[in-house]
Design a binder for these strands. Sequence first.
DNA 1: GTAATGGATCTTTTT
DNA 2: GATCCATTAC
Length: 961
Amino acid sequence: MSDANEQQQKIIDHTEGPLVVDAGPGTGKTSTLVKRYIALLERDVKPNDILMVTFTNNAAAELRDRIRDAMSKAGRLDEINSIRTSTFDALCLRMVLGSPDIVSRFFNIDPILSRKARLVDNESLNREHFMLFYSDFIREHGDRYRRDGNDVTALMGGLRTDLYKLINKMMARGMIPFRYDWFMDGESLAKGRMNNIGNVFANLDMKKMRKGVLDLADKDDYAVPAEILNALEKEEDRIPPEIYESLANDDKRFLMLEFVRDVYFAYIERSVRDNRLTFGLTALFAFAVLYTDERTRKLHSVEHMMVDEFQDTNELQMEICLLLLKKPNLCAVGDWKQGIYGFRYVSPDNILNFEEKTRRLMRALNRDRQRIPFEVPEKFSKIPLQENYRSSALVIEKSFRALDAKTAKDDDVARIEDDPNIVMLRSSGDPLRNEHTGFDMIYGESLEDQQRAILDKIKDYVFSGDHKIAEGGGLRDVRYGDIAVLCRNGKFCRSLKELADKEGVHAFLHGDVEIMSTREGKLVLAWLRYVNNASDIKGKTAILADMGASLSYMDSVLGRNGSEGTMPRNLSDQRLTLLRKRRRPNDLITSIFEFYGLSNDITQAITTILSRAYSGSLITISDLIRLIEDDINNETKYNVDALVNPDAVIIQTAHSSKGLEFPIVIVAGLDNRSFPSYKGDSEYLYFDEELGVRCKKEYFSRRDGDVLYERIINSWRDKLIRDVCKKQDRSEERRLLFVAMSRAKQYLCLAAGNDPSTFFKHFGEGDIFEGGGYESGLAYDMRRSQTPKIAQYSKRRKNVSVHELMEAQGAAFAEGIDELSGKGADYGTAVHDAAYLISCGIEPNQEYPELEEIRRILDSLRGAEIRTEIRCALPAGDVTLRGIIDVMAEFDDRIEIHDYKTDENDLNLPLYKLQLSIYAHAAMGARGKRAVCFIDYVSQKKSIEFNPLPMTDIEAAVLNL
DNA sequence: GTAATGGATCTTTTT
DNA sequence: GATCCATTAC
């Protein structure tokens, strides 16, 4: 391990009292943490008294490995098994299951959590559990919330999902309900700080306010009370107190708050009764146990605590940290600039205002008795790490520029040099990185153009020879695996990956996938339905449609055109086989995939998820069906452990790139409204620090004679508050851009489409560094930087179908193409369709003499992964050739490309060789294996095997166009 | 100059 | 259904 730099050493030596480490990207915080750990041991602190907390299992495991390593080097082998590293969640679970009975004491409820309580990590199942509980709650207590001309039950009827989300947010925020009130300051948090922000109203433009109210009064789906309008009439230039009062508080809202609290509390009670934990509940209960029980506190508390990624902690986690300390030795390591998890109710506040928050929380937690056994420390230290060992000076400079990029045209963001919280870094890594570095910007005229420009840029990095990677003190050429493309959203990732496959660029998509919406997921759903109920039309239709059955065929099979209608024999047989496995879902699902010869990362993930759900709380096949349907509806994503090709470009979201580094990074999709994203909170029920718990809808009733009109309408109060009083904070988008850009070690590139965002323009328009005050005194000069010329991707690639290309190859062949065989083109198509059905395991209802040969060919491919009718694309010259491969069989060592021909002679052979060679090159590019071609003359019962023609022949053919 | 209107386009996810 | 921005209206 290399020596620590000056600042790192300060951190290592700082062993007494609270310490915040501002660890920007690439500053070596993990190695500093490891060294600090060893330093503590050398001061005779026992391993049992040092707790290292991280967020992910990976991070915890890595930290543990590195500490072990360092300890064995330091000759401390005897203590190696006492290292305490943990994730927050594992730590909390251990504490809860250690003293489960305390939870009931804290909440004063009858049911008692048992040691066998289970943590359910499937979000769909948890949501479903909540919904079941909620229906029971409404049935029993719904009437309570219909009073005083209000009906919260009706209001919430359509907002159940929002309610579930809100409760989870409140957990993270440390808002805890009791039966009749809230824990600590929960109530004032729920009500919001409206009373303290009178000055917000004082500064409001009365004209704007008046107009806002009057506009809403005119609309059908709002109901502004008459007294508010009257008040507005009277007061000319001052905001009438009635409006102020009505915005801040009103009875309707208070009944809603009561409802939310009661549901929240009853949900906790029910979860305890069902012995069922979620991640949120586990943390909440861990806090409850620590807060209540001195014994548990003593059992788990430590003298030293180091928390990594502290900017990602929420309020509850920070409280748990404080309750776990014997002494004020909390070392919080993180970087507020990388706080990008606001949507999980985390804000960089914990690290930015560490001192103030610690004081406040300690006071609150010790208010009635001393739970934290020390006084609020006098001194809080903050040490920044300023040496960056990852990136070139250029990359660092550009990354920091992200922090003052405007998120909208009129955004007035402070320049980074004016922001006291920003600590500049110097590049201290391999000096070769500063020689071989670059910053580029590219854009295209459309989304696809942008993605093609990205792929071209990748090829340029890899093949032009203009770029070198610094490694082990030397230089080497660029490989695909050095490059990462970081996008704002998953959709962009997926479409880019698709295009990369078509263009033969080796790429690997990292990230969670909506696996239930894939073909594999839908097949399982269809089969489960069909197995569960032999007359399930949806299931049967999906199975047949997947096999490419025609509409008329499906009608006859499903008995829709008057006939009896039976499923094909092999399908009904398969159903019976599966039915016997209905109690063994793992086996059942595996068999479904086997039937299709499917075995890949997606099938793997689906099998695991469904089996796990089954072994948990689900019992029947209909439960599994519901789970899959839920996941499809809710677009639930699951992690898929894909096989990683070490030499492939990594495509992932900017969020998931946190903590990683790559020699070359392309930040993609810097498009207007996309990155930065302008999308606001879509929840109708939400919590906001200032506004408290609010609802965008309200219950409205009007009595007209004997008739009562009831409606759920938009809340004028909420609309006004958000329109007039709230400005939205998009700083997180800047931090996300910062995270993405600072992953790069040497080369950085930004990409946009036809409508670039403010972020993209920030780096492209004019010389933004001119006259700037970059007198930071650091080792590089920012003003030296050039604004790059933006290379536009102008030439749009033309798509050419393989058949067009063949037709263009001269008169000699043209004749043959039009009449594929003596039997005509229609006949050829019919045979192809039948062949497709056979490859899917279905017997076609029409028999052709050629099918015997086709069965023989498919038989000969046993052992290979067979895919049929695949679209493929191959860039050649300045066009992209596209076509459909009849059969592609992938063996371990090779790929076989087959194409059925019904010709009676060999006249078109040279042309077909060209056609299959194109397919072969596309397949070789996509799969990285050699390919062999087979022209299967199924009418003549012979196959011609050959090696694909070289690319030069294909390019020559393109020139003939 | 400012206000009203219309068009385009819309996310992230450890445990 | 919200929200920014460009265009039009005054």
